[in-house]
Simulated assay, not measured.
Amino acid sequence: MKAAFINSYGQFDQIKIGDIDRPEIDDHDVLIKMKAASVNPIDWKMVHGDLKALIKLKFPLVLGSDGAGVIEEVGAGVTEFNVGDEVFFRCDKANIGTFAEYFAIPANLIAKKPTNMSFEEAASIPLVGLTTYQALKEKAGMTEGSRVLIHAGAGGVGSFAIQFAKAFGAHVATTASKKRFVLLAELGADEIIDYQSQHIENELNGFDIVFNTLGDSVQEPSYKTLKKGGVLVNVLGIPEPLVVAQYTSNILVKLISHINQWRKEGLAAKYNAKYKHLLMYADGKQLREIADLIEAGKIRAIIDSTFPLAKVKEAFERSATGRAQGKIIIKISD
């Protein structure tokens, strides 16, 4: 089968398009004929080797972390899905490879594709959807009426997160350049801050939650927007020590994680706030809940651009600019 893969870490020119063996399934797996996948920063960071200290992967490494397609085979122990079902999913971090014509995955990690979305639209959802769900609901405890600041509202995660938060009755502020304001208003943002000319700490206060998708550059200003006891959830940088311990036994990596957590929590305490880090995990049940919101018309896909499988390198280059509005899609088959 055709796939996009690398044989070693490096730059985007390491990406190859070629033939590899079609995967086999176990009793609790399904084999998916891939229709589309999406590009996420974690995908091109894998090419650079940015996560190699935490996640050990084997070469050749097929790229791609989420997608959508049609079930071609089901394992003997699978009862919830059937051949021909249209599904979408986020794969486990230790078993990536959706930029391929076929992908094998445990059935508990998939969900039926929203009926009102194309495969390309559905492929744009899993990683950003699960990241948002786990950050806002599990880590931050968002409820109806919560005041939430979502950084980079026009990005893949941000554009989904605004809609998700509004679906649960939150008041949403977000940041973007002025040329994105119309889109963000359409998505439901209550307040939009122009990060090029405004400072969030001067414009916002009394917020319950900050969803930080940009990292350290906005960390301290974000704390100034929170009320006492507010929560900042970060999805970039070094995970929390308990999470790191699940992936590696390397003492140095663990030590770095502990020091980082101590520093992050210390900064949060300075502002009477709480710091939490999220390393998102795959979950089919949560995806089913997200699919329900989509089918109810509360969330729509925002697509920046679409590339064929042969143009993964170009798609990564587009993503790495940081200028994409919504998600970048890899179309794999009709």
Rank of each mutant, 00 (worst) to 15 (best):
I299V: 11
I299L: 06
I299A: 04
I299T: 01
R300Q: 10
R300M: 08
R300T: 05
R300E: 04
R300D: 04
R300F: 13
R300I: 08
A301I: 04
A301G: 09
A301P: 10
A301Q: 07
A301L: 08
A301T: 06
A301D: 09
A301Y: 07
I302N: 15
I302T: 15
I302A: 08
I302S: 11
I302R: 04
I303K: 05
I303W: 06
I303Q: 07
I303M: 11
D304W: 15
D304F: 13
D304N: 15
D304S: 15
D304A: 15
D304M: 14
D304H: 15
S305H: 10
S305L: 12
S305P: 14
S305N: 15
S305G: 15
T306D: 07
T306S: 14
T306M: 13
T306N: 07
F307K: 05
F307M: 07
F307H: 12
P308C: 00
P308D: 00
P308R: 00
P308W: 00
P308H: 00
P308N: 00
P308S: 00
L309Q: 01
L309I: 01
L309K: 01
L309P: 01
A310T: 11
A310E: 12
A310G: 02
A310K: 03
A310P: 01
A310C: 00
A310H: 03
K311V: 00
K311M: 04
K311N: 10
K311R: 06
V312W: 02
V312H: 02
V312C: 06
V312L: 02
V312R: 01
K313E: 13
K313L: 04
K313D: 11
K313T: 14
K313F: 03
E314V: 02
A315V: 02
A315D: 04
A315H: 05
A315L: 05
F316D: 02
F316V: 02
F316C: 02
E317D: 05
E317W: 04
E317M: 06
R318S: 09
R318P: 13
R318A: 13
R318N: 13
R318L: 14
R318D: 10
R318K: 15
S319V: 10
S319F: 13
S319K: 11
S319P: 10
A320P: 02
A320C: 03
A320V: 04
A320L: 04
A320I: 02
A320H: 10
G322S: 06
G322M: 05
G322Y: 08
R323V: 01
R323E: 11
R323A: 06
R323I: 01
R323H: 14
R323N: 12
A324F: 13
A324M: 11
A324H: 10
A324P: 09
A324N: 14
A324T: 07
Q325T: 15
Q325M: 12
Q325D: 08
Q325V: 14
Q325C: 08
G326F: 07
G326N: 06
G326Y: 05
G326K: 08
G326M: 03
G326H: 03
K327F: 10
K327L: 10
K327N: 12
I328Y: 10
I328C: 11
I328R: 09
I328Q: 09
I328N: 06
